[in-house]
Protein backbone atom coordinates (compact mmCIF):
# COMPACT_ATOMS: atom_id res chain seq x y z
CA UNK A 1 0.00 0.00 0.00
CA UNK A 2 1.35 3.40 -0.90
CA UNK A 3 1.75 6.04 1.82
CA UNK A 4 -0.70 8.31 0.00
CA UNK A 5 -3.49 5.70 -0.03
CA UNK A 6 -2.91 5.00 3.67
CA UNK A 7 -3.15 8.72 4.45
CA UNK A 8 -6.39 8.96 2.44
CA UNK A 9 -7.91 6.02 4.34
CA UNK A 10 -6.80 7.38 7.75
CA UNK A 11 -8.10 10.87 6.97
CA UNK A 12 -11.47 9.50 5.87
CA UNK A 13 -11.71 7.76 9.25
CA UNK A 14 -10.78 10.87 11.27
CA UNK A 15 -13.65 12.44 13.14
CA UNK A 16 -13.27 15.18 15.76
CA UNK A 17 -11.98 13.81 19.06
CA UNK A 18 -11.58 15.08 22.60
CA UNK A 19 -8.03 14.83 23.94
CA UNK A 20 -7.60 12.67 27.03
CA UNK A 21 -7.10 14.54 30.31
CA UNK A 22 -3.55 14.58 31.68
CA UNK A 23 -2.21 11.40 33.36
CA UNK A 24 -2.24 13.16 36.75
CA UNK A 25 -5.91 14.11 36.36
CA UNK A 26 -6.75 10.55 35.37
CA UNK A 27 -4.68 9.15 38.25
CA UNK A 28 -6.66 11.36 40.63
CA UNK A 29 -9.90 9.84 39.29
CA UNK A 30 -8.50 6.35 39.71
CA UNK A 31 -7.49 7.13 43.30
CA UNK A 32 -11.16 7.62 44.11
CA UNK A 33 -11.84 4.09 42.80
CA UNK A 34 -8.88 2.65 44.72
CA UNK A 35 -9.88 4.34 47.98
CA UNK A 36 -13.45 3.11 47.50
CA UNK A 37 -12.07 -0.41 46.99
CA UNK A 38 -10.05 -0.21 50.21
CA UNK A 39 -13.07 1.20 52.10
CA UNK A 40 -15.30 -1.59 50.77
CA UNK A 41 -12.75 -4.25 51.78
CA UNK A 42 -12.41 -2.82 55.29
CA UNK A 43 -16.20 -2.56 55.65
CA UNK A 44 -16.65 -6.20 54.64
CA UNK A 45 -13.81 -7.62 56.76
CA UNK A 46 -13.89 -5.11 59.61
CA UNK A 47 -11.25 -2.68 60.85
CA UNK A 48 -8.52 -4.28 62.96
CA UNK A 49 -9.21 -4.13 66.68
CA UNK A 50 -5.81 -2.64 67.53
CA UNK A 51 -6.24 0.16 64.96
CA UNK A 52 -5.67 3.04 67.40
CA UNK A 53 -2.51 1.43 68.69
CA UNK A 54 -1.27 0.78 65.14
CA UNK A 55 -1.85 4.40 64.16
CA UNK A 56 0.49 5.60 66.89
CA UNK A 57 3.22 3.10 65.90
CA UNK A 58 6.00 4.84 63.87
CA UNK A 59 6.70 1.58 62.01
CA UNK A 60 3.07 1.36 60.87
CA UNK A 61 3.09 5.04 59.91
CA UNK A 62 6.22 4.57 57.80
CA UNK A 63 4.74 1.46 56.16
CA UNK A 64 1.53 3.30 55.35
CA UNK A 65 3.37 6.26 53.83
CA UNK A 66 5.58 3.98 51.70
CA UNK A 67 2.67 1.83 50.51
CA UNK A 68 0.54 4.89 49.69
CA UNK A 69 3.45 6.52 47.87
CA UNK A 70 4.00 3.28 45.92
CA UNK A 71 0.32 3.05 44.94
CA UNK A 72 -0.03 6.67 43.88
CA UNK A 73 3.28 6.83 41.98
CA UNK A 74 2.63 3.48 40.27
CA UNK A 75 -0.83 4.59 39.11
CA UNK A 76 0.59 7.85 37.82
CA UNK A 77 3.41 6.00 36.06
CA UNK A 78 1.02 3.45 34.49
CA UNK A 79 -1.18 6.21 33.09
CA UNK A 80 1.79 8.32 31.97
CA UNK A 81 3.31 5.30 30.22
CA UNK A 82 0.03 4.88 28.35
CA UNK A 83 0.58 8.25 26.67
CA UNK A 84 3.44 8.30 24.14
CA UNK A 85 6.32 10.48 25.28
CA UNK A 86 4.62 11.55 28.54
CA UNK A 87 7.21 9.88 30.78
CA UNK A 88 10.42 11.20 29.32
CA UNK A 89 12.75 10.34 32.21
CA UNK A 90 13.23 6.59 32.13
CA UNK A 91 14.37 6.47 35.75
CA UNK A 92 10.94 7.68 36.91
CA UNK A 93 9.44 4.28 36.11
CA UNK A 94 11.74 2.77 38.74
CA UNK A 95 10.41 5.06 41.46
CA UNK A 96 7.30 3.00 42.43
CA UNK A 97 9.12 -0.36 42.65
CA UNK A 98 11.92 1.47 44.47
CA UNK A 99 9.55 2.85 47.09
CA UNK A 100 8.00 -0.56 47.52
CA UNK A 101 11.43 -2.18 47.84
CA UNK A 102 12.28 0.30 50.61
CA UNK A 103 9.24 -0.96 52.55
CA UNK A 104 10.45 -4.54 52.02
CA UNK A 105 13.96 -3.60 53.16
CA UNK A 106 12.63 -1.87 56.29
CA UNK A 107 10.56 -4.98 57.14
CA UNK A 108 13.50 -7.31 56.44
CA UNK A 109 15.81 -5.29 58.69
CA UNK A 110 13.19 -5.37 61.46
CA UNK A 111 12.83 -9.14 61.08
CA UNK A 112 16.59 -9.67 61.26
CA UNK A 113 16.94 -7.40 64.28
CA UNK A 114 14.60 -9.51 66.44
CA UNK A 115 16.70 -11.04 69.22
CA UNK A 116 16.87 -14.85 69.29
CA UNK A 117 16.77 -15.52 65.54
CA UNK A 118 14.31 -14.96 62.69
CA UNK A 119 10.73 -15.44 63.94
CA UNK A 120 8.35 -17.77 62.10
CA UNK A 121 5.89 -16.11 59.75
CA UNK A 122 3.20 -18.74 60.28
CA UNK A 123 0.63 -19.68 57.63
CA UNK A 124 -1.74 -16.85 56.76
CA UNK A 125 -2.90 -17.08 53.15
CA UNK A 126 -6.05 -15.18 54.15
CA UNK A 127 -4.04 -11.92 54.10
CA UNK A 128 -2.91 -12.67 50.56
CA UNK A 129 -6.49 -13.28 49.41
CA UNK A 130 -7.62 -10.05 51.09
CA UNK A 131 -4.95 -8.09 49.23
CA UNK A 132 -5.90 -9.65 45.91
CA UNK A 133 -9.61 -9.25 46.60
CA UNK A 134 -9.29 -5.55 47.33
CA UNK A 135 -6.92 -5.00 44.38
CA UNK A 136 -8.87 -6.77 41.64
CA UNK A 137 -11.47 -4.02 41.03
CA UNK A 138 -9.04 -1.07 41.01
CA UNK A 139 -6.65 -3.12 38.83
CA UNK A 140 -9.35 -3.73 36.23
CA UNK A 141 -10.33 -0.06 36.21
CA UNK A 142 -6.71 1.09 35.90
CA UNK A 143 -6.03 -1.32 33.03
CA UNK A 144 -9.14 -0.08 31.23
CA UNK A 145 -8.01 3.51 31.75
CA UNK A 146 -4.55 2.67 30.39
CA UNK A 147 -6.08 0.86 27.44
CA UNK A 148 -8.21 3.90 26.62
CA UNK A 149 -4.96 5.77 25.97
CA UNK A 150 -2.26 4.25 23.75
CA UNK A 151 0.32 2.25 25.71
CA UNK A 152 3.44 1.53 23.68
CA UNK A 153 4.98 -0.79 26.25
CA UNK A 154 2.36 -3.00 27.86
CA UNK A 155 4.90 -4.75 30.11
CA UNK A 156 5.60 -1.64 32.11
CA UNK A 157 2.08 -0.29 31.88
CA UNK A 158 0.61 -3.62 33.06
CA UNK A 159 3.26 -4.13 35.74
CA UNK A 160 2.74 -0.62 37.11
CA UNK A 161 -1.05 -0.96 37.04
CA UNK A 162 -0.75 -4.23 38.98
CA UNK A 163 1.64 -2.69 41.50
CA UNK A 164 -0.63 0.35 42.01
CA UNK A 165 -3.74 -1.75 42.61
CA UNK A 166 -1.89 -4.26 44.81
CA UNK A 167 -0.37 -1.45 46.89
CA UNK A 168 -3.89 -0.27 47.68
CA UNK A 169 -4.90 -3.88 48.25
CA UNK A 170 -2.17 -4.34 50.85
CA UNK A 171 -3.06 -0.98 52.38
CA UNK A 172 -6.53 -2.39 52.99
CA UNK A 173 -5.07 -5.60 54.38
CA UNK A 174 -2.91 -3.58 56.77
CA UNK A 175 -6.10 -1.93 58.05
CA UNK A 176 -7.83 -5.29 58.51
CA UNK A 177 -5.09 -7.65 59.73
CA UNK A 178 -4.32 -7.26 63.47
CA UNK A 179 -0.97 -9.09 63.25
CA UNK A 180 1.99 -6.89 64.13
CA UNK A 181 4.89 -9.32 63.58
CA UNK A 182 7.26 -8.09 60.90
CA UNK A 183 7.89 -11.63 59.66
CA UNK A 184 4.14 -12.01 59.02
CA UNK A 185 3.93 -8.65 57.26
CA UNK A 186 7.01 -9.38 55.14
CA UNK A 187 5.80 -12.86 54.14
CA UNK A 188 2.04 -12.40 53.78
CA UNK A 189 1.62 -8.68 53.02
CA UNK A 190 4.76 -7.57 51.17
CA UNK A 191 5.85 -10.72 49.30
CA UNK A 192 2.53 -11.54 47.55
CA UNK A 193 2.36 -8.00 46.19
CA UNK A 194 5.96 -8.06 44.96
CA UNK A 195 5.56 -11.51 43.38
CA UNK A 196 2.19 -10.74 41.76
CA UNK A 197 3.47 -7.49 40.26
CA UNK A 198 6.55 -9.29 38.92
CA UNK A 199 4.41 -12.14 37.56
CA UNK A 200 2.15 -9.62 35.81
CA UNK A 201 5.16 -7.94 34.24
CA UNK A 202 6.52 -11.30 33.06
CA UNK A 203 3.14 -12.57 31.81
CA UNK A 204 2.52 -9.40 29.80
CA UNK A 205 6.06 -9.58 28.39
CA UNK A 206 5.44 -13.15 27.18
CA UNK A 207 1.98 -12.30 25.82
CA UNK A 208 3.17 -9.25 23.91
CA UNK A 209 6.15 -11.14 22.50
CA UNK A 210 3.84 -13.88 21.19
CA UNK A 211 1.42 -11.32 19.76
Amino acid sequence: MKHESLIVSLVSDAAAITPLPSPSARAARWLIVAIAGVAAGVMVKGLRQNWTMALSDPGFQLSTVLVLATGISAALTALALAVPGALRQTWLRWLPPGLFAVWGAVLAVDVLRVPGGVPAAGWATACMWKTWGIAVGPAAVLLMMARAAAPLDWRWTGGMAALAALAFGVLGTEMICPMTGHAHILTWHFAPVALTALATFAAVAVATRRA
Binding site: I7, D13, A14, P19, P84, A86, A149, A150
Partner: peptide, 11 residues
Protein backbone atom coordinates in the same frame (compact mmCIF):
# COMPACT_ATOMS: atom_id res chain seq x y z
CA UNK B 1 1.15 6.64 10.74
CA UNK B 2 -1.41 4.07 11.90
CA UNK B 3 -0.23 4.41 15.51
CA UNK B 4 -0.39 8.20 15.30
CA UNK B 5 -3.96 7.81 14.07
CA UNK B 6 -4.93 5.44 16.90
CA UNK B 7 -3.18 7.53 19.55
CA UNK B 8 -4.14 11.02 18.34
CA UNK B 9 -6.54 11.50 21.27
CA UNK B 10 -3.62 11.13 23.72
CA UNK B 11 -1.80 14.25 22.49
Amino acid sequence: LMSVHRARHTW
